[in-house]
Design a protein around this nucleic acid. Structure first.
Lengths: 120, 120
DNA sequence: CGCCTAAGACTACGGGTGTAGTCCATCTCG
DNA sequence: CGAGATGGACTACACCCGTAGTCTTAGGCG
């Protein structure tokens, strides 16, 4: 199930607020995305078609829920991305990030903790 | 300049062997990709159109060169990806990777060195 | 010297994507 | 009650993408 960039924006809203109506998704995105409500509804429908979201009737409208798990989606996307661009190696990816935009001290701290755990 | 997955395969060959002819690109990819030489040539043309590759005449054929830098392309792609999927945070990305597919001991070692350097 | 082949140029085509528009039914407010 | 707003369903449409096919021309080989 391939999810496009625009669809992912919408799906992210569903992960944050499961059981939201289309108009509220529109509103939640209004700051970042200059989409009309039609566009948002199209994206929601496509997510449902693709099995990435589900609906529940609420009067004459639907409430939308994510139908795929955020954690596993992101893990898979991350895996595909590093395979595609970094030949599957994680370290170079982090190195590029550090180089081009820097890591926050939060990131560095988190990574250290993570590495500590992994070495056990 | 958006580069598609298939185009990136081809561009990667150019990064490895700049100044290569279309038929040799085809050959270099033969192991991984079951593409006809036509397909490879289409992808090369699209890279040139997009400004991601350049050509130099060599008799009645072209030699192809990458026109964008590997390092900066990958750095940008990595940045866009974590913005899109991980809200710009690097650590969660690595955590997901570690979780879903594990990191090689090489990766862990590299990351440790990287973090050591960054902390200076 | 003529023909096959290989190179690039141009064309194709079905499916995905971003970004809506139209149609119709229903709810709501005056 | 009637009209406009709102919801979903269906439709649109240009552009990108993967994956080639055709056309034309120029070398290379017999």
């Amino acid at each position: 199930m391939k999810i496009s960039a625009a669809e992912l924006e919408v799906l992210s809203v569903l992960w944050e607020q499961p059981g939201i109506a289309a108009s509220d998704v529109h509103e939640a995105l209004a700051n970042d995305k200059d989409w009309t409500s039609r566009t948002v509804k199209t994206l929601l429908s496509r997510l449902v078609e693709k099995g990435a979201a589900s609906t529940q009737e609420d009067g004459r409208r639907y409430l939308y829920f994510p139908a795929i798990d955020e954690e596993s989606y992101k893990a898979k996307a991350a895996g595909q991305f590093i395979d595609r661009v970094f030949s599957g190696r994680a370290a170079p990816l982090v190195a590029y990030l550090a180089d081009s935009r820097g890591l926050t001290s939060q990131d560095i701290e988190d990574l250290e903790k993570l590495l500590g755990d992994l070495k056990k």
